[in-house]
């Protein structure tokens, strides 16, 4: 356990020791600010009956952040270790492969949660100026938070997996961006595939991340979405573990 916690601390520290960590923070802060300004000015013109959280996820800023930031957050996790050669010192320390993969993932996830903290400030601003109107149901905030966290799990695990495949951070970022974008674009496929009947359409409907996120933002916790995202996360972490172990049978 001590080894695991030490590794997680090192991971988070790594983000703040490096330039990229701050760049990601700054860019995400900018995007969140922009989206916030846009929503507020839209609401000024025309009140909406939808909760603010849901309005927010109808803009594409969230997806922009998710798709762009997650490859950059996760690209370093294994690729940098392999590039520096520290992979060897790491894997000969008395920690298990499982602990290393877990720590890389949790470290990335914590950083991901950190970069979304400015959203809370936006909520506080709205609450202060908007009064106690409907948008501030705690349940709604919690389910939105859960939605962000689940997508984070999925995209971080995907990124860590991509990073384990290569020793180049750029390649890792490109692979995870490609994965992430494809998964996101599949959300639209279900809408365009109206001609198709039966299974394919149903399947596409199940992996519609965009719908899932909107449901979370509307306060609906759909177990199908939870199970899908958690199981995909588990799958990517398992694959990462296999890749890390592969040095044993190469």
């Amino acid at each position: 356990m001590q080894g695991f916690l030490t590794l997680v601390r090192r991971e988070i520290g790594g983000y703040f020791n490096s330039f990229t960590g701050y760049v990601v923070l700054a860019v995400v802060l900018l995007l969140i600010g922009l989206s916030f300004a846009e929503i507020v000015s839209a609401l000024n013109g025309q009140p909406s009956s939808l909760p603010v959280t849901q309005l927010y996820y109808q803009t594409y800023y969230f997806w922009l952040i998710l798709l762009l930031a997650s490859p950059v957050i996760t690209m370093r996790s294994f690729a940098l270790e392999k590039d520096l050669g520290t992979f060897e010192t790491l894997m000969t320390a008395p920690v298990s492969d499982r602990q290393v993969v877990g720590a890389k993932f949790i470290g990335a996830l914590i950083f991901y949660v950190i970069i979304f903290q400015p959203l809370l400030i936006c909520v506080l601003v709205l609450r202060y100026f908007g009064g106690a109107q409907g948008a501030f149901d705690y349940g709604l905030l919690a389910s939105t938070g859960l939605g962000i966290l689940l997508l984070g799990c999925l995209y971080m695990s995907m990124g860590v997996f991509a990073s384990s495949l290569t020793r180049s951070q750029v390649t890792a970022a490109m692979i995870s961006f490609a994965f992430g974008l494809s998964l996101f674009v599949l959300s639209f496929a279900s809408a365009t595939q109206t001609g198709e009947t039966g299974t394919i359409r149903e399947m596409l409907g199940v992996i519609n991340l965009r719908d899932h996120m909107e449901a979370f933002a509307a306060g609906i916790i759909d177990t199908r979405a939870v199970i899908l995202q958690l199981s995909l996360t588990a799958m990517f972490l398992f694959l990462t573990l296999r890749v890390v172990e592969s040095r044993r049978w190469k």
């Binding site: 601390r9 790594g14 520096l84 520290t86 060897e88 010192t89 008395p94």
Partner: peptide, 29 residues
């Protein structure tokens, strides 16, 4: 029971000496 220094002595360049050694010591239990 082993202290191993691999070829080319890989290190984290973004860490400070003391910080790194402390991290390694904690990692080694």
């Amino acid at each position: 029971r082993i202290g191993y220094m691999p070829e080319n002595n890989p290190l984290y360049h973004d860490m400070r000496v003391r910080e790194y050694l402390k991290y390694r010591a904690r990692l080694k239990g």
